[in-house]
Simulated assay, not measured.
Amino acid sequence: MSRCPPHTPDGRYFVVIGKAGPRLWRAANPELAAEEREKQVSELMSARRAVREATGDSDLAAARTRVNSAKIALGERGPVWWTDGAPDLNRRLVQGTCYADWWARR
């Protein structure tokens, strides 16, 4: 079954097509317990709403800090969640990475 957006074969990244081309974005840690994932996704959505509704610089900064904290808890930012020593390619264009051939064959 195909996932949308497409995920790399190892599940570490999903691909987003932008103006510069396809870019890798780190996926959430699949080892998170369902309850923890739900909690953090809920916090992320709440924090994103707070960003949208912020009325001043301090409100906006606090909301963005919440977004970042939730993304770190999900494994989308901060230390990588895999343990094989592979580098983090988050936000890099697919071309020029170890996923370039995979992407070209899709």
Rank of each mutant, 00 (worst) to 15 (best):
R92I: 00
I17R: 11
Y99P: 00
S46W: 05
D88L: 02
F14M: 06
E43Y: 03
Q95I: 04
I72W: 03
P5D: 05
S69W: 05
G75H: 01
R92T: 11
E43G: 08
A20I: 09
T55G: 15
A34S: 12
P5A: 08
E38A: 15
S58G: 02
A63V: 05
R91P: 00
R91E: 15
G18E: 13
N90H: 14
A86G: 06
F14L: 08
A73C: 07
D88E: 09
R12F: 05
K71L: 15
Q95A: 15
A54H: 06
R77G: 01
Y13G: 00
A73K: 01
Y99K: 01
G85R: 03
R105C: 09
R64W: 00
E76I: 11
P22V: 03
N68Y: 12
K19R: 11
G21P: 09
C98K: 12
R92Q: 15
A20K: 13
R37I: 00
D88Y: 03
P5L: 07
R64E: 15
R26A: 02
S58D: 14
A33D: 15
V51C: 11
G78N: 03
R91Y: 10
I72A: 09
A73V: 02
L89A: 03
E76K: 13
F14H: 14
R105W: 01
R48E: 14
G85M: 03
P79T: 09
Y99A: 01
S69D: 15
K19M: 02
L89F: 04
K19E: 13
C98Y: 00
R92L: 13
N68W: 09
D59Q: 15
P30T: 06
V16H: 10
A47N: 11
A61Q: 13
E38V: 05
S46M: 13
R77Y: 10
G56K: 05
A61V: 12
G56T: 07
D57C: 04
R12L: 01
N68S: 15
W82R: 01
R26K: 08
K71A: 10
